[in-house]
Protein backbone atom coordinates (compact mmCIF):
# COMPACT_ATOMS: atom_id res chain seq x y z
CA UNK A 1 0.00 0.00 0.00
CA UNK A 2 1.28 3.45 -0.89
CA UNK A 3 0.14 6.85 0.39
CA UNK A 4 1.46 10.23 -0.65
CA UNK A 5 0.80 13.69 0.78
CA UNK A 6 1.92 17.13 -0.34
CA UNK A 7 2.92 19.59 2.39
CA UNK A 8 3.27 23.32 1.74
CA UNK A 9 5.76 25.39 3.68
CA UNK A 10 4.04 27.64 6.22
CA UNK A 11 0.76 25.72 6.06
CA UNK A 12 0.12 24.84 9.67
CA UNK A 13 -3.60 24.39 9.15
CA UNK A 14 -3.20 21.32 6.98
CA UNK A 15 -0.44 19.87 9.10
CA UNK A 16 -1.30 16.61 10.71
CA UNK A 17 -3.32 15.34 7.77
CA UNK A 18 -0.71 12.83 6.65
CA UNK A 19 -0.21 11.65 10.21
CA UNK A 20 -3.95 11.28 10.78
CA UNK A 21 -4.25 9.45 7.45
CA UNK A 22 -1.50 6.96 8.17
CA UNK A 23 -2.81 6.25 11.65
CA UNK A 24 -6.33 5.66 10.35
CA UNK A 25 -5.11 3.43 7.51
CA UNK A 26 -2.86 1.35 9.76
CA UNK A 27 -5.64 0.81 12.29
CA UNK A 28 -8.05 -0.16 9.49
CA UNK A 29 -5.72 -2.89 8.28
CA UNK A 30 -5.27 -4.19 11.80
CA UNK A 31 -1.83 -2.87 12.67
CA UNK A 32 -1.07 -2.76 16.39
CA UNK A 33 -2.11 0.54 18.06
CA UNK A 34 1.36 1.30 19.43
CA UNK A 35 2.99 0.73 16.02
CA UNK A 36 0.35 2.96 14.39
CA UNK A 37 1.04 5.62 17.01
CA UNK A 38 4.80 5.51 16.32
CA UNK A 39 4.24 5.80 12.58
CA UNK A 40 1.87 8.73 13.15
CA UNK A 41 4.38 10.54 15.39
CA UNK A 42 7.17 10.12 12.83
CA UNK A 43 4.86 11.32 10.05
CA UNK A 44 3.61 14.29 12.06
CA UNK A 45 7.13 15.47 12.86
CA UNK A 46 8.06 15.14 9.17
CA UNK A 47 5.01 17.22 8.18
CA UNK A 48 5.80 19.88 10.75
CA UNK A 49 9.43 20.09 9.68
CA UNK A 50 8.34 20.82 6.12
CA UNK A 51 5.66 23.33 7.23
CA UNK A 52 8.14 25.12 9.51
CA UNK A 53 11.32 25.09 7.46
CA UNK A 54 10.75 24.22 3.81
CA UNK A 55 8.94 25.70 0.80
CA UNK A 56 7.31 22.53 -0.40
CA UNK A 57 7.56 18.85 0.30
CA UNK A 58 6.07 15.42 -0.10
CA UNK A 59 5.59 12.65 2.38
CA UNK A 60 5.28 9.17 0.97
CA UNK A 61 4.41 6.19 3.06
CA UNK A 62 4.87 2.63 1.91
CA UNK A 63 3.22 -0.09 3.94
CA UNK A 64 4.82 -3.50 3.35
CA UNK A 65 4.02 -6.76 5.16
CA UNK A 66 7.07 -6.45 7.40
CA UNK A 67 7.78 -2.72 7.51
CA UNK A 68 6.50 0.81 7.06
CA UNK A 69 8.73 3.23 5.16
CA UNK A 70 8.11 6.94 5.71
CA UNK A 71 9.96 9.16 3.25
CA UNK A 72 9.89 12.96 3.47
CA UNK A 73 11.49 15.04 0.72
CA UNK A 74 11.45 18.80 0.64
CA UNK A 75 12.63 21.74 -1.37
CA UNK A 76 13.99 24.17 1.16
CA UNK A 77 16.99 25.78 2.80
CA UNK A 78 18.49 22.44 3.82
CA UNK A 79 20.31 21.72 7.07
CA UNK A 80 23.89 22.96 7.38
CA UNK A 81 24.76 21.01 10.53
CA UNK A 82 22.89 17.70 10.72
CA UNK A 83 24.57 16.45 13.95
CA UNK A 84 23.45 19.68 15.67
CA UNK A 85 19.92 19.34 14.25
CA UNK A 86 19.71 15.84 15.69
CA UNK A 87 20.36 17.14 19.21
CA UNK A 88 17.40 17.60 21.54
CA UNK A 89 16.75 21.32 22.01
CA UNK A 90 18.56 22.53 18.88
CA UNK A 91 16.27 24.54 16.61
CA UNK A 92 16.45 27.27 14.00
CA UNK A 93 12.71 28.00 14.17
CA UNK A 94 11.59 31.62 14.51
CA UNK A 95 10.02 33.11 17.64
CA UNK A 96 6.54 33.07 16.02
CA UNK A 97 6.83 29.36 15.39
CA UNK A 98 8.05 28.72 18.93
CA UNK A 99 5.10 30.59 20.41
CA UNK A 100 2.84 28.04 18.74
CA UNK A 101 4.63 25.29 20.62
CA UNK A 102 6.71 24.13 17.66
CA UNK A 103 10.43 24.50 17.15
CA UNK A 104 11.45 23.10 20.51
CA UNK A 105 14.22 21.09 18.92
CA UNK A 106 12.44 17.79 19.43
CA UNK A 107 11.24 16.95 15.92
CA UNK A 108 14.16 15.07 14.40
CA UNK A 109 15.08 13.42 17.74
CA UNK A 110 11.46 12.22 18.03
CA UNK A 111 11.59 10.82 14.50
CA UNK A 112 14.76 8.88 15.27
CA UNK A 113 13.44 7.72 18.64
CA UNK A 114 10.24 6.28 17.20
CA UNK A 115 11.71 4.63 14.11
CA UNK A 116 13.80 1.48 13.78
CA UNK A 117 15.94 2.86 10.97
CA UNK A 118 16.52 6.55 10.34
CA UNK A 119 18.48 8.33 7.63
CA UNK A 120 18.73 12.01 6.83
CA UNK A 121 20.42 13.74 3.90
CA UNK A 122 20.48 17.44 3.23
CA UNK A 123 21.98 19.90 0.81
CA UNK A 124 22.08 23.55 1.82
CA UNK A 125 19.99 25.65 -0.55
CA UNK A 126 18.36 22.60 -2.13
CA UNK A 127 16.44 20.58 0.42
CA UNK A 128 16.31 17.72 2.87
CA UNK A 129 15.31 14.06 2.65
CA UNK A 130 14.45 11.90 5.61
CA UNK A 131 13.76 8.18 5.51
CA UNK A 132 12.35 6.43 8.56
CA UNK A 133 11.53 2.73 8.76
CA UNK A 134 9.31 1.08 11.33
CA UNK A 135 9.57 -2.69 11.53
CA UNK A 136 6.23 -4.43 11.96
CA UNK A 137 6.01 -7.12 14.62
CA UNK A 138 5.91 -10.63 13.13
CA UNK A 139 2.41 -12.05 12.93
CA UNK A 140 1.58 -15.15 14.91
CA UNK A 141 1.88 -18.33 12.92
CA UNK A 142 4.53 -16.95 10.58
Amino acid sequence: MYLEYRVDGGDFQASGQAAAGIKRTLRQIGIDAEVARRAAIVTYEAEMNIAIHAYLGTISIEILPERIIIQADDEGPGIADIPAAMQVGYSTATEDIREMGFGAGLGLPNMRRYSDEFEIESQVGVGTSVRAVIILPAKEGN
Partner: peptide, 30 residues
Protein backbone atom coordinates in the same frame (compact mmCIF):
# COMPACT_ATOMS: atom_id res chain seq x y z
CA UNK B 1 5.51 22.09 23.34
CA UNK B 2 3.70 19.97 20.78
CA UNK B 3 6.58 17.61 20.02
CA UNK B 4 7.03 17.01 23.74
CA UNK B 5 3.35 16.13 24.08
CA UNK B 6 3.57 13.92 21.00
CA UNK B 7 6.39 11.95 22.61
CA UNK B 8 5.05 11.70 26.16
CA UNK B 9 1.25 11.73 26.26
CA UNK B 10 -0.42 8.34 26.10
CA UNK B 11 -3.62 6.76 24.87
CA UNK B 12 -6.55 7.94 26.96
CA UNK B 13 -4.66 10.66 28.83
CA UNK B 14 -5.99 14.12 29.59
CA UNK B 15 -3.72 16.91 28.29
CA UNK B 16 -3.50 20.37 29.85
CA UNK B 17 -2.10 23.20 27.68
CA UNK B 18 -2.35 26.93 27.07
CA UNK B 19 -2.07 26.52 23.28
CA UNK B 20 -5.28 27.36 21.41
CA UNK B 21 -4.54 26.76 17.71
CA UNK B 22 -5.89 23.79 15.78
CA UNK B 23 -2.67 21.80 15.80
CA UNK B 24 -3.47 20.79 19.37
CA UNK B 25 -6.35 18.77 17.93
CA UNK B 26 -4.03 17.09 15.43
CA UNK B 27 -1.69 16.16 18.28
CA UNK B 28 -4.57 15.05 20.49
CA UNK B 29 -6.09 12.95 17.74
CA UNK B 30 -2.85 11.26 16.71
Amino acid sequence: LLSDVMAKVGLGDVWVTVQTHENIIAVGSI
